[in-house]
Amino acid sequence: MNVLRFVPNVICSITKCDGYVARYYAFKSALKIKWVRPEKIPFYKPEKTGDLGLNLKVTSKDFAGRFGESKELQDANEVVKKLFTLEYLPEMETRKMKRNEAVALVRRHELDWGSMEAKLAKMTAIIQDMQKTMDKFPRNAILKVELNELIHKRKKFLGYLRQWDYKRFEWILEKLNLVYKPYPPKLLPVTRKDSLRKLTQKHCDEIVQKKLDAYKAELTLKQKQFFKEKSEKLAFIRQEELECELEPTITEEEIQEAKNKYESL
């Protein structure tokens, strides 16, 4: 029980009663650590998926598909022209245009639709459209599952590309404006106890680092005096040894080195 004498104030709820140790149900740490539970972010949000957004130029005033190339439409009146713009056509047409534009950012050649870059671009455009729909209809279960699968598939593909060709992987992250974070080794739920343990460890590490830094600074301040004394003492020892006709154990260079260090400080 003598051990208990050194128990710090932190564990204040441990008491000694008739030779055995009793502990209250749960003791609180005296450290002033405030834990804030991180807010749960839905899986499809850009913060989670790493989508920083594609800068696409498609607007509702654009013609759908290849209608822009049509000569007849150029001569048609304004009402007819309007009917062929994305504004007056189903949402799907806008999405297709966006997808095509995203692929055009990274494609290898004009007909490229299946390379890994093109696939990732397509997926990114689709995911970003789905995210917007998800915000509107958060209870759409089918969409939720599809989106989840697509996000994980893209992450898997990015992981493959990283292994195959690192330079291309980095290039695609830059082009599609994506953030890649690998899966953590253990996907555990956030708990109060575990989080507090981590924060306490962090706090302790900080204290240790502060003390080390302070000690380092203290020693650095003393360095000047130390090297001054060192050079003097070494010179004295050498002098004594020479006077006693002994072989000197200290060379001139060692003395000079100490002096140089003193001067440099």
Partner: peptide
């Protein structure tokens, strides 16, 4: 080139446990 900007695969990731 993208390390710590867009590519965070050079470090082990963890589940966010604290809001600060």
């Amino acid at each position: 080139s993208q390390e710590d900007k867009r590519d965070f695969s050079h470090r082990e990731t963890y589940t966010k446990y604290h809001e600060d």
